[in-house]
């Protein structure tokens, strides 16, 4: 067993797990954060996407021990008790999620994109979502939602030049 301490959504959490445990299973089974989903378990579908030290990763392809001491942000850490994250709000307004299974992963990929590039082109968004498969909704409404949030953010000071 290895003892892993991860800073999850701003809070340090510790668990003792077998060394082969993935970050995804650590989050779901030890910390009861079931937002990240197990879809394919081999890094194709992106349903398990979370952010580690600010970068989006497939949590099914990372050992829990490799995340030891790092910052992990999951879908559960996006909203506060007071308000939804703008991306969550836009996805809800535009009906961007149907069955919703891919949603947590898509939203984390979108968040990682906007953190790095507040003014993405449509191609940038498509590229950012290439690792997230959706089988019901399609990507159009998701892209619209992400563009809407980016534009709203862009109205604030210091948008990044293209």
């Amino acid at each position: 067993m290895v003892t892993v301490t991860v800073n999850v959504n701003g809070e340090p959490r510790t668990a003792s797990v077998p060394p082969e445990t993935t970050l995804l299973r650590l989050l779901r089974e030890q910390f009861n954060l079931t937002g990240a989903k197990l879809g394919c378990d081999v890094g194709d579908c992106g349903a398990c996407t979370v952010m580690v030290d600010g970068k989006s990763v497939n949590s099914c392809l990372m050992l829990a021990g490799q995340a030891d001491g790092r910052d992990v942000l999951t879908i559960e850490g996006l909203a506060t008790l007071e308000r939804l994250h703008p991306l969550q709000e836009a996805f809800e307004q535009l009906g961007s999620l149907q069955c919703g299974f891919c949603g947590p992963g898509i939203l984390m990929s979108a968040k990682a994109l906007l953190d790095e590039n507040p003014d993405p082109s449509e191609q940038d968004i498509r590229d950012a979502l290439a690792g997230n498969l959706c089988r019901c909704t399609g990507y159009i409404k998701m892209i619209e939602a992400i563009q809407g949030v980016a534009r709203a953010d862009g109205a604030r000071p210091a948008p990044k030049s293209a």
Binding site: G43, G46, T49, K55, S56, V57, N58, L61, M62, S109, A112, L113, D127, A128, A130, G131, N132
Partner: peptide, 9 residues
């Protein structure tokens, strides 16, 4: 190679 998530890892 892969997608953003796999390129990050």
């Amino acid at each position: 190679i892969g997608a953003v998530q796999t390129r990050n890892l």
